[in-house]
Simulated assay, not measured.
Amino acid sequence: MNTTSPEYRLEGGGVDIRTLPKVSLHDHLDGGLRPQTIIELADDIELDLPTTDAGELGEWFAAQANSGSLVEYLKTFDVTTAVMQTREGLTRVAREFVQDLAADGVVHGEIRWAPEQHLARGLSLDDAVEAVQEGIEEGIDEVARGGAEISIGQLVTAMRHADRALEIAELAVRHRDRGAIGFDIAGAEAGFPAGRHRTAFDYLAGQFFPVTVHAGEADGLESIRGALVDGRALRLGHGVRLAEDITIERQDDENTYVSLGRIAQWVRDREIALETSPSSNLQTGAIAAWGEELVDHPFDLLYQLGFKVTVNTDNRLMSATTLTRELSLLADAFGYELGDLEAFQLNAAAAAFLPLDEREALAERIVTGFAG
């Protein structure tokens, strides 16, 4: 991926969105590698790639991911995880990840990744987390030397189809004062409910350790219910199929009248943040029930109804995107103005897995930055 972002301006030639302070809550480490880095790391381990041209490789990832199926989309990670099996590879990828976020105007990022997928070349779970943290800290230091400031935390993730969730939860808590700020489960959603990992979620609750759960992407309301009830999720990864629990009763020229089901009502009333990723949601078919274009995404309905929507990239490599681009696409689709983009960032700041005083400081930084 090109680490320099083009300008994306609001309609009318306003401010360049890239320069605005942004918060990234849903961004996978193994979905944000630079193509050139993949090529160089693959050469070190003699891994065959579809192409050794960085531009063509980036296009290959985007084409493979644009399948309309989460299962097919996830297959692209076989390549990225293959080059992230050594301390050096993990550290480099994490360092560049932080640099790329900062270049896109991100001031706080939460990097999610599954350590259990990075043990093929002899690393332990703790080795892997420490390697990523080393890269994060190097990236933060390099960003600071360039005159900017960014905060980063790890969301330690368990794979929902595996049976290591408790072990990964214990790993996350073990590193809570050394970079880990939250826990997640990811992977194939349908058929693998959060309840499979109830023991892990019970442990995390007892440790007062925050949880986000992928739900409402490749499965519907029961998956979201499981994330909330079994997972005690404070945020929903994607969560877009929550819109299945919203009934449009009638519309007129000025208003849309809706009723909320119990799950949607709970999520809205409790201000549980939705970690939406517009381009990814199109690629994986998460919004297929509503259409195939971004304008069909239930994002705007959720926003207008007062849900705490946030905007994210999910996997920048696979979606050939940045947070700036995602905000620009939404602004074009729904006519959003600067104040709307600010609201999305304040929602994300409020939902960040940070202490209250740090979330308040982050919100102040966003308000100041948007005031220009």
Rank of each mutant, 00 (worst) to 15 (best):
D53H: 00
I168T: 06
T212G: 08
A333V: 08
G220S: 02
L221R: 08
G122E: 00
V106P: 02
R225N: 01
L301S: 06
R176Q: 13
A128D: 03
E222S: 15
A200N: 13
T80D: 13
T324E: 14
E56N: 13
D357F: 11
I152W: 00
S5H: 14
D230F: 02
H197F: 05
I39F: 11
R178G: 13
V83M: 06
L282S: 12
R232D: 07
A243R: 14
I248G: 04
V79D: 05
R9V: 01
A54L: 10
A162K: 11
G239A: 01
L166V: 07
A349G: 10
L236D: 09
L356Y: 10
G58Y: 03
D78L: 08
I152T: 07
R34S: 03
G237R: 12
I140F: 03
N2I: 13
G179R: 00
D48Q: 10
Q207T: 00
V267Y: 10
R92K: 07
H108N: 04
E337P: 00
D202P: 00
G239D: 10
E275T: 10
D53T: 04
D53K: 13
G261V: 05
E72C: 01
A144N: 08
A120Q: 11
R196M: 05
P6L: 07
Y8R: 14
F299G: 10
T199F: 03
A205C: 01
L119H: 09
I224G: 02
Q133E: 15
T81P: 02
F192E: 09
G369L: 10
R112H: 13
N66S: 09
D27E: 12
D184S: 05
E293I: 00
A188W: 02
I140D: 02
S67C: 07
R87A: 11
I272H: 07
V309A: 15
D300E: 15
E275M: 04
P210W: 01
A350C: 06
E222L: 04
L47S: 02
